[in-house]
């Protein structure tokens, strides 16, 4: 990726998109690059990431804007971008525990599609803070 970004022949200096993909068997990270030299689009796919521990090096040091895109991919798919200095959830609340765009995250109405399974992997409501009871101030 460094060669694609810095190399004199390529100069893909614009990262148009960075997305995570869950194919059901493996995880992928897809980069859409755009060159400033020639009007060429390039799609780079980092494939074959294991579904239980998807880890991939961060590209945020090359494209600054990749930081948020990597945060989104982490938030939605749980892909760990090593070297990203701000890898935390971007859309979901910080106390959320699952990764909603993975294929094993089922919506409640999926029960209709797989009868007998009912609710599965659905996030339980999470109490965000303890309520302290105090006496009535007089």
């Amino acid at each position: 990726m460094r060669e694609l970004h810095d190399g004199d022949r390529f100069r893909f200096e614009i990262l148009a998109d960075l997305a995570g993909v869950d194919t059901g068997t493996e995880m992928q990270v897809v980069y859409h690059l755009y060159s400033v030299l020639t009007p060429d689009w390039l799609r780079v796919i980092a494939e074959g990431l294991p579904r239980d521990t998807p880890r991939v090096p961060s590209v945020a040091f090359l494209w600054n804007g990749a930081e948020w895109a990597e945060r989104e991919a982490y938030d939605m798919f749980g892909i760990i971008f090593e070297g990203n200095r701000d890898l935390r959830r971007i859309y979901m609340p910080p106390d959320y525990t699952s990764f909603p765009l993975r294929k094993d995250f089922l919506l409640p109405d999926d029960a209709a599609r797989s009868p007998g399974e009912g609710f599965r992997h659905v996030e339980q409501p999470h109490v965000i803070a303890r309520v302290q009871r105090k006496a009535l101030p007089s």
């Binding site: 200095r85 701000d86 890898l87 935390r88 609340p93 910080p94 106390d95 965000i128 803070a129 303890r130 309520v131 302290q132 009871r133 105090k134 006496a135 009535l136 101030p137």
Partner: peptide, 30 residues
């Protein structure tokens, strides 16, 4: 006032919607 019992006063807890979140910073940038 508590929603359950209006005689009880509760302290509004620090939430994730506050400017300073109720947890220690988790990343370098934070």
């Amino acid at each position: 006032r508590s929603l359950d019992d209006p005689d009880i006063w509760v302290e509004t807890p620090a939430t994730i919607y506050d400017a300073v979140p109720p947890y220690p910073p988790r990343t370098e940038r934070e």
